Amino acid sequence: QVNQQQLQQLMDMGFTREHAMEALLNTSTMEQATEYLLTHP
């Protein structure tokens, strides 16, 4: 289960819902999730 607010923040940054969910499931903080998305295009 992912934090919906964090998911929305990542989608607002331009990431897809699927990619943002993957990042949130594989990390524990927003900072890590953002870094994950930038390093796993």
Score class of each variant (00 low, 15 high):
Leu7Gln: 11
Asn3Trp: 01
Leu10Asp: 01
Glu18Cys: 06
Phe15Lys: 05
Leu37Gly: 10
Ser28Met: 04
Asn3Val: 00
Asn26Lys: 12
Thr34Trp: 05
His19Pro: 10
Val2Gly: 08
Glu35Val: 03
Gln8Gly: 09
Gln32Ile: 02
Tyr36Arg: 13
Thr16His: 09
Ser28Cys: 07
Arg17Glu: 13
Gln6Glu: 08
Leu10Met: 08
Ala20Ser: 07
Glu35Ile: 02
Leu37Asp: 06
Val2Met: 09
Leu7Ile: 14
Met30Thr: 10
Arg17Ile: 02
Thr39Gln: 13
Gln5Ala: 10
Leu7Lys: 03
Phe15Asp: 02
Met11Gln: 11
Leu37Cys: 14
Thr16Ile: 10
Glu18Thr: 03
Met21Asp: 13
Arg17Ser: 12
Val2Ile: 11
Ala33Leu: 01
His19Val: 14
Ala33Trp: 00
Asp12Trp: 01
Asn3His: 05
Thr29Phe: 00
Glu22Pro: 02
Glu22Tyr: 06
Met30Gly: 08
Glu22Gln: 02
Gln32Trp: 01
Gln9Tyr: 08
Gln8Ala: 11
Leu24Val: 10
Glu22Leu: 04
Leu25Tyr: 09
Arg17Met: 04
His19Cys: 12
Asn3Leu: 04
Val2Ser: 06
Ser28Asp: 07
Gln8Cys: 13
Met13Asn: 12
Ser28Pro: 12
Pro41His: 10
Glu31Arg: 08
Gln4Arg: 05
Thr29Pro: 01
Gln9Lys: 11
Leu10Asn: 01
Leu37Trp: 11
Gln5Glu: 13
Asn26Phe: 07
Ala33Tyr: 00
Asn26Leu: 03
Met11Leu: 07
His40Lys: 15
Met21His: 13
Glu18Phe: 02
Leu38Ser: 15
Gln4Glu: 09
Asn26Cys: 13
Gly14Lys: 07
Glu22Phe: 05
His40Glu: 14
Thr34His: 15
Leu7Tyr: 02
Asn3Ala: 01
Phe15His: 15
Ala33Pro: 03
Phe15Ser: 07
His19Thr: 14
Val2Cys: 00
Gln1Asp: 00
Glu31Leu: 05
Leu10Lys: 01
Glu31Asp: 12
